[in-house]
Amino acid sequence: MKKRINIRMSGLGGQGVVTSAHLMAMAASHEGKFAISNPFFGAEKRMAPAESYVRIGEEKIYDRGELVFPHVVMVYHPQVITMGKSYTMPFYSGIKDGGLIIINDDIELLTEEEKEDLAKKKITVYYVPATKIALELAGTELATNMGMLGALAGLTHAVTMDGLDKALQDRFGKKYVASGGTATLDEAIKKKFAKKEMLLQKNLETIRRTFDEAEAFAKKNPTFAVNVS
């Protein structure tokens, strides 16, 4: 099978995990890659577990539905780990050997047992304080997902900054049809910024920061490579 990267994004309702999956897939699609994204199929509520999935590859992707065997697991909220707000237990269940975990926090959240388990599977764990960065750069925690996307792109190069920029334009630059809760959040974030351009720019800045840091980390850790199969 040609190269494929399967990403599972776990977070809480309202954090934008569904939007990030769509953005990621749209970015990949802008770059001529094949991509499919979908949310977990349920009645998502604010602060309840939420999950979405994106698959990116070099040949046509048929596989859809929730990702049982991901290469990358992204944790958008510490409670996914600490309070078990995850659809699977443990949150990294099914992760492929040599995979990658990205966690939104700057303190250690894993137990010794979990660390041991992950080491056996040669999993890289990367911490990024995405919410803090979002608050600092964009002035709102609603940009947390941007920070997470930057880290994902910086570590894996599954998509480029340019692709993400285009996807952002697609998503927030024109009329977009979102379901109930998402539409409300879209309105909230639009109100936060006086102008659409400002929203796009702040989001992009957040992505750029985490992207650069993650890319530097990847360079410094030459042994690290997401084993994309």
Binding site: H22, A25, M26, S29, F34, A35, I36, S37, N38, P39, F41, R64, G65
Partner: peptide, 11 residues
């Protein structure tokens, strides 16, 4: 198929 098609972004 609900969700697998309706809620999945595809080309």
């Amino acid at each position: 198929d609900g969700f697998f098609v309706t809620h999945t972004k595809d080309m």
